[in-house]
C-alpha cells in the first residue's frame, strides 16, 4: 500500500512577511523558506503509518520552482521513500495543483493521499478537497486521528463544535489538522541517507496538464493597522473605560 504526500515550500512560519511597496505581492527575496507546517504533519503521519507496518511506501510530491527539491529532501529525511518534483516557475492555483496531483495518482495508484489542510501562504484550504473531487474519492479533512478499520478508514476530524468521526472507503484523501501528530526533526544520519533517495523531475506537461489561470491577483496590500490604545492603571479604571465605550453594563 502506497501513500502520496504533496508538500509545499512556503515562507517559514516564524518570518514576519513584508508586502512589496508596489503592491504586487509579498517580498520573498532572502526570506527563509520551509515546508508548510501542515504538510510536515502529513509526512509525519505517512511515515508513522509505514513504521506501524500499515503501508509500504511514502512518496513526497512538490510542485514549484527548482528550490522545492530542498523541501522534498526534508521529507525524505523525515522518512519518505522517494520524491517527485513537478517543476514550474508559474504560480499554480489549487485547482491546477489538484489536476497535476490527480495525474500523478493515476500513474502511481496509491491507496491514500495525505495533504496539509492549508498552506500558510495563500491560506486557501482547497487542494485536498479538490483532489478528492477529481478522483471521485472520499475526503477526510482537518483530521486529528486516523485509524484503519478493515478496508476502511476511521477518521476523526475537527469541526466547529468539537470532533466528528467518519468512516471512509479507500482509496481516500486525508487533510491534516494541527493535533494529528507532532512532526519529528530529521536526524543527521537520516539527512545523509535522504541525499541518496531518488527524486524524479517532471513538468506539468509530462502529466498532460495545461495550467490555466482562473484568478488574477490585482494587488496585495497591508491590512489596516490597529493602533495601540492606552494602558489603564487599575481594574476599576478598566471597567469605567469599558462602560464609557458602551461595551458593558
Amino acid at each position: 500500500m502506497k501513500v502520496i504526500v504533496p508538500i509545499k515550500r512556503v515562507v517559514d512560519y516564524n518570518v514576519k512577511i513584508r508586502v512589496k511597496s508596489d503592491q504586487t505581492g509579498v517580498d520573498l527575496a532572502n526570506v527563509k523558506m520551509s515546508m508548510n507546517p501542515f504538510d510536515e504533519i502529513a509526512i509525519e503521519e505517512a511515515v508513522r503509518l509505514k513504521e506501524a507496518g500499515k503501508i509500504t511506501e511514502v512518496i513526497a510530491v512538490s510542485i514549484g520552482a527548482a528550490q522545492a527539491t530542498e523541501t522534498i529532501r526534508t521529507a525524505l529525511a523525515m522518512g519518505a521513500d522517494r520524491g517527485i518534483l513537478v517543476k514550474t516557475d508559474e504560480m499554480v492555483e489549487p485547482i491546477n495543483v489538484a489536476k497535476i496531483l490527480k495525474a500523478i495518482i493515476d500513474a502511481e495508484k496509491p491507496d491514500l493521499a495525505i495533504l496539509g489542510k492549508q498552506a500558510i501562504d495563500d491560506d486557501c484550504n482547497q487542494t485536498g478537497q479538490m483532489l478528492a473531487a477529481l478522483l471521485g474519492w472520499p475526503q477526510g479533512t482537518f483530521a486529528s486521528k486516523v485509524e484503519f478499520d478493515g478496508d476502511k478508514l476511521l477518521l476523526t476530524r475537527e469541526i466547529d463544535g468539537g470532533l466528528q468521526t467518519l468512516k471512509l472507503n479507500m482509496p481516500a484523501v486525508i487533510t491534516t489538522d494541527l493535533r494529528l501528530n507532532e512532526p519529528r526533526y530529521a536526524s543527521l544520519p537520516n539527512i545523509m541517507k535522504a541525499k541518496k533517495k531518488p527524486i524524479d523531475e517532471k513538468t506539468p506537461e509530462d502529466y498532460g496538464v495545461t495550467i490555466k489561470t482562473h484568478l488574477e491577483v490585482l494587488k496585495v496590500t497591508e491590512p489596516p493597522v490597529r493602533s495601540a490604545g492606552i494602558k489603564v492603571e487599575s481594574v476599576e479604571q478598566l471597567v469605567a473605560k469599558l462602560k464609557e465605550a458602551g461595551v458593558i453594563g
Binding site: P138, G140, L154, I159, G161, G162, T165, L166, L168
Partner: peptide, 8 residues
Amino acid sequence: LSEWVSEN
C-alpha cells in the same frame, strides 16, 4: 463514499 459515525 463515506459515512457519519459519531460526533463529540
